[in-house]
Design a binder for these strands. Structure first.
Lengths: 261, 261
DNA sequence: CTACTAGTTCCATTATATGGAACTGGATTC
DNA sequence: GAATCCAGTTCCATATAATGGAACTAGTAG
């Protein structure tokens, strides 16, 4: 009986596992409870097989059924999640994106999040190299004059600090009014920039990365000499926004089923 | 050919999946890279089978190999982790423990963590009922007079607040010196208590819960009328420490292999 | 060069997964 | 309260797909 084709780069002796893994991946990626039928449709396996596999996956704690009988990721996934810092995982998932941006722009790329009321860089591609361990470079750069900081401020992940805004260079914005107007613009355009505001000759551009619920959780950006970047702000801003959007898509719970609109 | 016995409550038509799941579970639970041979030994499957299954699991993103070729949890696990809040997962994993303590003691049981410099309750079993959603009861109780707060202070998860220590009841400790000595005792005994310090007639007892690296991440405790609890402090302290220890074990990366000491 | 150790590939064998069809059990309708 | 439908499970004959011993390969040490 000639089956359509083997799925992907066919392998031998693992049909059952490939199918089971397909079910697990579907559930995890969907990130919303999927009913038996959802899975049956989505994965295109015969009912009996689907049933058998799901039962086995539930027994082995890879999947679990919620109160209404739909399937969700099982205890093994929880266990993993509690043991691993979610920023760590963000970094792992973001890595390809960072490298892509690095390749696109040839500039220093980084990803920042807030920790308390500080902006910390959690990953960086610098020519080639990437900060790895938990001991992150806690760059203590004032948020109001860095591009990534502005992104986080603009989307309300961080609040503008109390008191005086430090005048780091002659270009630094110290007027709260002006800053607020600029932040509003950031949300409109979808990217932030700083030219010479943090350091003379240094330009940075950043865009927001959104998490599961659509809330901004991080900022993706590039920085480099103003000479190379200052007249490409918009181009790079769009690029970053694009890439950040893609990354967000990866993090976002797939809102509905993918089949029908 | 009579095989020893079927594993567990044998099921039909899923040998391959059961075995594959066993491999995945072993890797995830170990939470340290396991080599091919580790898995071969640990799971007791023939080499060829192990190899075949591992290859399939890697292909399907359930597992992944690190630089040195050892197996670790794959992209699907990362994805799950970034999408889910680790406190959420802590609550899920802790639920059975909480319920057990509830059954043991018949008192209100809760689990607290720090968020910023506040102590927040993330789960509670109260007679029967459990807070579920993300909108946690942010009990804003001063740390220095609650048992869970003391645990978090004692283990340095939280710092004793600046300024005056509020005198909530006549029994509240307001002398930093005295508090420090008591906190030292907490780490020695493995549990903390407050009798009438937060509210007259209210006693609480708490013990530390440790995370992946062995660091304290939460506190597990019970509270109830002093009349019922004040002369069982040590007994309950031990009980809680015990249960908290068990929960910690669940969260802790299994430090070495389990086989040989 | 020889002897290991770690892991992959082969391939004959058959145990094992498969899937169509029959079945169950709970809603929903008439 | 029977009849109908839908979601999901169980059955079972079939042959496909997983199995595992042994041969093989690659890398390392002695």
């Amino acid at each position: 009986m000639e089956r359509a084709v083997s799925t992907s780069t066919s392998s031998t002796g693992t049909q059952a596992i490939d199918r089971a893994a397909l079910l697990v991946a579907t559930v995890v990626r969907a990130d919303e409870p999927l009913s038996f039928l959802d899975l049956h449709d989505e994965c295109g396996l015969p009912k009996s097989t689907t049933s058998r596999l799901l039962t086995a996956l539930e027994r082995t704690e890879l999947l679990e059924r919620n109160a209404s009988g739909s399937y969700v990721a099982g205890p093994l996934f929880w266990l993993y999640a509690t043991r691993h810092d979610q920023w760590d995982e963000l970094v792992r998932l973001a890595r390809p994106t960072l490298e892509r941006v690095s390749k696109d722009t040839r500039e220093t790329v980084n990803l920042s999040v807030t920790r308390g009321d500080r902006v910390v860089q959690v990953a960086q591609v610098d020519s080639t190299y990437m900060l790895g361990t938990r001991d992150w470079t806690e760059v203590d750069v004032p948020a109001h004059c860095s591009a990534l900081g502005k992104v986080l401020l603009a989307y309300g992940v961080l609040d503008v600090q109390q008191g005086e805004l430090e005048q780091v260079t002659p270009s630094t914005i110290t007027d709260r009014e002006v800053l607020q107007r600029q932040l509003a613009q950031v949300t409109r355009r979808g990217y932030a920039s700083t030219v010479d505001e943090l350091e003379i000759g240094l330009t940075g551009i950043g865009a927001p990365v959104r998490g599961s619920g659509g809330e901004v959780i991080a900022a993706l950006g590039v920085s480099g000499p103003s000479t190379r970047l200052e007249n490409r702000l918009d181009e790079l801003g769009r690029l970053l926004n694009d890439r950040a959007e893609q990354l967000s898509g990866l993090l976002r719970r797939r809102t509905r089923k993918e089949g029908v609109a």
